[in-house]
Design a protein around this nucleic acid. Structure first.
Lengths: 204, 204
DNA sequence: GGGGTCATACCGGCCAGTCGGTCTAAAGTT
DNA sequence: AACTTTAGACCGACTGGCCGGTATGACCCC
């Protein structure tokens, strides 16, 4: 053996670093078979390494799961920060934010599937962290809605909290019905859902 | 031993039949800890019986899970059938249907939590059955939307399929944020969400 | 005395995590 | 320039525990 053709890990022609490769295949497997339905052995097999490698980079199987959450959450939160602080009326920025969160979720469908299905498998302390991040997103989104209400653009008889729960539910469930090979692109779905949201919010 | 104080299963003063009690505690535990996070031992302990009892009434752990789905789905489908066939305009009936599905879901929150989180744990054949039932619900709901579009009440530029996915997502996610001890009753949430849906659908 | 209703003991399999070890390449050392 | 040391990257056999499911038989009511 030992024909390890330099360039680090060989076997298949896969050249992405082991650590990221592990996270990637783990996300995929978690999405397909669930967290509990995926053994560590499955993951390392799919990544073309062994358990030693995985436990070298990650402290536990839970760690891997946490990384999935952290990655997608921090990405979406930074998007929202940027949009909320940008120019435009409250309605314009809410439209952007809504379309963006749908689009990015559809672009990372596997992460979303894992997200809404396996949160409860995390150990309590990490679960608290995730919920806190999620809450920050929720509140930021809510602030946008409240701005629109204050401006008279949106109806005031439905609390912003409920509206946000309403719309983020739609986002979190994307993975349960959307098929990438279907007729609608992520951007199209984003636009349609944004329309439905704004329509429901608009004052008559 | 053998101080079984008649009245069937004794230990605690619980008098509901064992079979239903098992399903009930199983639902509760599945909702709290997930399907895979709940062992058969946990279930029978909580029900105050032993494994012998459980495997007497149910063929497997999966069976228990399937019962949860079947129960809530058939209930909601029969509701929808009745509403759709009832009197009123398309909009009126859609309002009723939307409010009802939210209300009944909130009244059976544990079932909903299990529902959207553990479907993938079912063996393939049962999963197919559940999806078929779900599809019937989806299609019936969709027909209502299409009726409203045909009548000119709802906008025609958003496909009914997307609208149904949109709203049922909201329903399926209820378990992830609603707290029974919160400020809103199930009926209130139903009304608010119905408003948001109809508003988004209405022609301008 | 037979059918329904459970209890108890037990098995085989899987699975997260561990641990000692190997390989390699860069960093000192002389 | 050869030689040693060190540290990171990764391997893979092993284990201890849990978990779904089964086999067998006791108890009770008709």
């Amino acid at each position: 053996m030992a024909l390890r053709s330099r360039e680090s890990t060989g076997r298949t022609g896969n050249r992405t670093p082991v650590k990221e490769r592990l996270l990637h295949v783990a996300t995929r497997l978690f999405a397909r078979h669930g967290f509990e339905g995926t053994s560590v052995q499955d993951i390392v097999d799919a990544a073309g390494v062994t358990k030693g490698a995985m436990y070298h980079y990650y402290g536990s199987k839970d760690d891997l799961l946490y990384e999935v959450y952290h990655q997608v959450l921090s990405m979406q939160l930074s998007h929202l920060d940027e949009i909320a602080a940008g120019p435009g009326t409250a309605e314009q920025r809410l439209r952007e934010a809504a379309a963006d969160v749908v689009r990015t979720s559809l672009d990372n469908l596997d992460d979303m599937i894992v997200f809404f299905r396996s949160l409860h498998m995390l150990p309590d302390d990490k679960q608290v962290q995730v919920r806190a991040e999620r809450r920050r997103y929720h509140d930021k989104f809510k602030a946008l809605v409240e701005e629109g209400v204050a401006a008279g653009t949106f109806r005031a008889d439905i609390s912003a909290d409920i509206v946000v729960h309403y719309f983020l539910s739609v986002v979190n469930q994307l993975g349960s019905w959307y098929r990438p090979d279907g007729p609608l692109s992520p951007a199209e779905v984003g636009d349609l859902f944004t329309e439905l949201l704004i329509g429901g919010l608009a004052t008559r």
